[in-house]
Design a protein around this nucleic acid. Structure first.
Lengths: 124, 124
DNA sequence: GGGTGTATGTAGCCACACTACATATTTATA
DNA sequence: TATAAATATGTAGTGTGGCTACATACACCC
């Protein structure tokens, strides 16, 4: 039972990141303003959360592919720099529009649960 | 393609609510302080969001069952009131603890993305 | 040659929000 | 007294996406 709870907790944490992560990637690309490659995004999240959250490669790359298949990002190979070649992703106008709409929808749905959202924001 | 985007957008909205909804139910039960039944929870969410979000029965009841199977809520039938009998759910100490830990984990993972979270909070 | 860091990728699993439908009871209305 | 509407709960099946586990390849250092 204790084991079960821990398993569920871990899963719930995962579930809470679902959807959020895709939108967060769009948001990160939008904010950065210039193309980023997958590994760079992983490092960015790791650094931003001070190592609290280090997404796995197997999590990030599929998301980027999905975003691209929807036309929300576009990628380009680049081997200018040293090391393995990188695939740079940049957000498209459709991606910006999608991100905006998704956040709006989420806000609409969550409007009224300000206390709950505050619990999610407040520093411990 | 346009159709595809709209479909995806709808799904992403759904995905963003994933996990959140389960935790939100725990939060609602915690805040209310007394047992609530499924239909009441649906109405509460509808009212709180001013009709912007009216969860379907098929969404809420399975969640409550899952929460109960994990020991986070406990239910009791009651036919005291008029109308069809109701199943009242109340949060357990394990449920409170789980909710607390999940929110903490989420905050840890999201720490550093304050700007993003602010975008999620700000009034339009 | 072996180890580490950089960089990308895929097959398969699992959980959960949602659709679509079914059922039963009570109350209001014609 | 039918019958429609509101109340109340439920379940089978679908789609999706985060994640695990693994594989590949290049550059550099020892």
């Amino acid at each position: 039972m204790i084991n079960g709870n821990q398993k569920w907790r871990a899963n719930l944490g995962r579930e809470m990141r679902r959807g959020f992560l895709s939108v967060l990637l769009l948001w990160i690309l939008k904010k950065r303003g210039e193309p980023m490659y997958g590994y760079e995004i992983i490092q960015t999240i790791a650094k931003t959360t001070q190592g609290q959250w280090v997404p796995k490669a197997g999590t990030i790359y599929p998301i980027l592919r999905r975003l691209e298949s929807k036309g929300f990002v576009k990628s380009e190979w680049s081997s200018k720099s040293a090391g393995p070649s990188r695939r740079y992703y940049r957000i498209t106008p459709e991606g910006r529009e999608a991100e905006r709409r998704i956040l709006l929808e989420w806000k609409r749905h969550m409007s009224g649960f300000r206390d709950f959202l505050h619990d999610l924001l407040e520093v411990d």
